[in-house]
């Protein structure tokens, strides 16, 4: 078993800034399973926390959660594949999510998605080779008035135009952190 943990920083109290080892991550997973296994509807939160720990949900994690919850792997896989917020691939540093809810869709969300795919050279659900960007679609980010909407990590970009995609992506590629963040870009 090997889990790629490069996207999961250590969350221990020592503030050492070091990456957590695989074994440490697995210990945390056991704690999560222990906490949620008896809870009604505990599977989804456990999967969500596992995903924040590992950055994604690889087989060993899924197998362990299935065993911990006394469920079959196929059932847990069914839950994971039902919700778009779960990912089976390691995520990049920046998670780009394009809304394809009705409002965004009719106002060009699809074209925005195509432009991003082209720019990043990846498909939905994939991560760029340099592990910088992952691409996903969402259903509604609650900003329909400003459609089409794109989110990069926790920041929202509104009224995005396909022609401006290169610019949007470019700010994350520079060495320094982008100057302007988020809103009303």
């Amino acid at each position: 078993m090997s889990i790629d943990a490069t996207v999961a920083p250590c969350k221990c109290d020592c503030a050492c800034g070091e990456q957590a080892t695989e074994a440490e991550l697995m210990v945390r997973l056991e704690e999560v399973i222990e906490e949620y296994r008896e809870k009604e509807g505990g599977l989804i939160p456990a999967l969500q926390i596992a995903q924040t720990i590992f950055g994604y949900l690889p087989d060993p994690v899924v197998n362990r959660i299935a065993a911990g919850f006394n469920k079959t792997v196929s059932e847990v896989a069914g839950v994971i594949s039902f919700y778009s917020f779960f990912t089976r691939n390691p995520r990049g540093k920046y998670l780009v999510r394009v809304c394809l809810g009705t409002a965004c869709y009719v106002r060009g969300g699809k074209e925005v998605l195509e432009a991003i795919k082209k720019r990043l050279e990846i498909d939905v659900g994939e991560t760029t080779e340099d592990r910088q960007f992952s691409l996903e679609v969402g259903r509604c980010f609650g900003a329909c008035g400003m459609a089409p909407v794109v989110m990069v990590n926790d920041d929202t970009y509104q009224r995005v135009k396909p022609a401006r995609i290169n610019e949007l992506i470019a700010q994350f590629i520079t060495e320094e952190e982008p100057a302007a963040e988020g809103e009303n870009k």
């Binding site: 899924v62 079959t72 196929s74 059932e75 847990v76 896989a77 069914g78 994971i80 594949s81 039902f82």
Partner: peptide, 26 residues
């Protein structure tokens, strides 16, 4: 497969039109 055979190799994967009835992660 789940209830009578207690194996659980099959389960609905994905959602909506794209649902596949099959083993984990299709």
């Amino acid at each position: 497969c789940n209830e009578i055979q207690g194996v659980g190799a099959l389960f609905p994967q994905g959602r909506g039109f794209d649902t596949v009835i099959g083993p984990a992660f299709t």
